[in-house]
């Protein structure tokens, strides 16, 4: 917030947050429409034009549903965990450079701060299962804990190559380093590793094992109902939106694009990746748990390390 009046900064912050949360809300609508389209159905189309009021109807329904707190739960943990996921997503929003002059905060350690926030938001899933004290939730949490810790490493390794290329830990500098060529082209391996790891970090199919409904009922959020469940649900989609925005930032050159640069390029790229998340979910089967872990430790991490080594060598002698 260098130099700008506090009021304008606050207005910007609220505006950006509103846009991101609206995008997250409509991601739930998009999920259902895309799923229907891929499965040759129609999907929700009765509430408003094209069913656009469906998310609002859903939220209202969840507000008025009875909130059931099962007796064995740990009340305090059960109460605070749904908030953690949203807190993480909202904190990450502050760091994303939407356009040249539309960034709320650009700390010199932005990339690391983002990794830290991502690490902390994993707690929502882990604590939700521990607070519930039922086997399905606990198994979901166990899977989530191992998965989040494992996939953070390839994700960080992929970002490290990007940081090497850009020579800076600031997100704005990383986007600026891509003004000619996005890192998706110059760093294809890092791009693919990051893309895969992000699916695991957001608990989305094919890596949605912490909430695999065929094995674990609802996984970590089995014992949540009403608005507390809605927080998890909204958090997942907000996470998808933020993750797409980060892919855009790290690998697709943010606001740069062919033709006039600006926030619209950022929006188009982000929306494409939100669609990509949905597309993968409805076309790709869920992996088995041991395959998921082996893939992280035996494929992604060595590949990520090798990629960093090659990138560093090219940086020195290239």
């Amino acid at each position: 917030m260098s130099g700008q009046p506090l009021l304008i900064f606050a207005a910007k912050a609220v505006g950006i947050l509103a846009v991101v949360l609206t995008a997250a809300t409509y991601a739930t609508w998009a999920e259902r429409r895309v799923a229907a389209w891929i499965q040759d159905r129609i999907g929700p189309n009765k509430t408003g034009p094209f069913g656009l009021l469906q998310p609002i109807a859903d939220v209202l329904k969840l507000f008025f549903k009875e909130e059931i707190v099962p007796s064995p739960v740990d009340p305090l943990l059960h109460f605070i965990t749904p908030g953690i996921i949203m807190t993480g997503v909202i904190a990450a929003t502050a760091l994303i450079p939407f356009a040249e002059n539309l960034t709320l905060a650009d700390p010199p350690v932005g990339v690391l701060l983002l990794l830290g926030i991502s690490a902390l938001s994993g707690y929502s899933v882990i604590l939700a299962g521990m607070a519930s004290r039922t086997k399905y939730s606990l198994l979901g949490s166990l899977r989530a804990a191992a998965q989040v810790v494992s996939y953070e490493i390839p994700m960080a390794l992929a970002i490290a190559s990007v940081v090497l290329m850009a020579g800076s830990l600031s997100l704005v500098d990383i986007v600026k380093a891509q003004s000619h060529l996005p890192f998706a082209i110059t760093q294809p391996i890092a791009f693919i590793i990051y893309l895969i790891a992000v699916f695991a970090e957001t608990n989305r199919a094919p890596f949605d094992l912490p909430e695999a409904e065929s094995e674990l009922v609802g996984g970590y959020h089995t014992e949540y109902s009403s608005m507390r469940f809605a927080w998890f649900f909204a958090g997942e989609y907000a996470h998808v939106v933020i993750a797409s925005a980060l892919i855009t930032t790290f690998f697709l050159g943010g606001w740069y694009g062919p033709g006039p640069d600006g926030v619209w390029w950022f929006a188009i790229k982000t929306l494409f990746f939100v669609y990509f998340f949905l597309w993968v979910r409805w076309t790709y089967p869920r992996t088995r748990y041991d395959q998921l872990m082996k893939f992280a430790w035996k494929v992604l991490i060595p590949l990520g390390l090798l990629n960093i080594l090659i990138t560093a060598l090219i940086k020195i002698w290239g």
């Binding site: 690391l112 690490a119 882990i126």
Partner: peptide
């Protein structure tokens, strides 16, 4: 945050 809060406490909880 990344190392202690993100990884080590997760392992404790695990």
């Amino acid at each position: 945050i990344i190392v202690y809060s993100g990884a080590i406490v997760v392992f404790f909880l695990f």
